[in-house]
Amino acid sequence: MNKFLKSFGYSFSGIAYAFKMEWNFRFHLIALLLVILAGWFFELSLNDWLWISAAGGIVITAELFNTAIEVLVDLVSPEIHPKAKIVKDVASAAVLVSAITAFVIGLIIFIPKILMYAA
């Protein structure tokens, strides 16, 4: 059980590292916080919250994987190498695709609510 509890400490250390070292991670956390506040304001349905939670979780997870990949590539290939660049670019692209998908989900959920509120 002690080993199990220690694993949470390692996980939180990883989150803390990403928060401290990665501007994009902080940006996505702030964006997620704003979406949560907007969801609270517009009183989202359970179904909407499920979509927001899934999209936000996927973006944050992609950011964490991207950070891990970048650190690993820097460790195994400290010199500039074309394949190392490709690995980093593809990991970054995964974050971009997940963020665009989350943005579209947000538009689908929030635009009708904003239009209804404005009317």
Rank of each mutant, 00 (worst) to 15 (best):
N2R: 07
K3E: 09
F4S: 07
F4H: 12
S7M: 10
S7Y: 08
F8H: 15
G9N: 10
G9F: 11
Y10L: 15
S13F: 06
S13N: 14
G14T: 04
I15K: 08
A16G: 11
A16M: 10
Y17F: 12
A18T: 09
A18S: 15
K20Y: 06
W23Y: 12
W23E: 06
N24R: 07
N24I: 04
F25N: 01
I30R: 02
A31K: 14
A31Q: 09
L37D: 03
L37K: 10
A38P: 03
G39F: 02
G39W: 05
W40R: 12
W40F: 13
W40M: 06
F41N: 08
F42M: 02
F42Y: 14
L44Q: 04
S45D: 11
L46G: 13
L46P: 05
N47A: 15
L50T: 11
S53Q: 00
A54D: 00
A55W: 02
A55V: 01
A55K: 00
G56H: 01
V59Q: 00
T61G: 15
T61H: 07
L64N: 06
F65L: 15
E70M: 08
V71W: 09
V73Q: 00
D74V: 05
S77E: 06
E79L: 14
H81E: 13
P82I: 02
K83W: 13
A84I: 02
I86T: 06
V87P: 03
K88L: 05
V90Y: 08
A93W: 05
A94W: 08
A94R: 05
L96G: 04
A99Y: 01
A102I: 00
I105W: 04
L107A: 10
I108W: 13
I109W: 07
F110R: 06
I111D: 04
I114W: 02
L115D: 07
L115C: 09
L115H: 07
Y117I: 05
A118G: 14
A118D: 05
A119F: 14
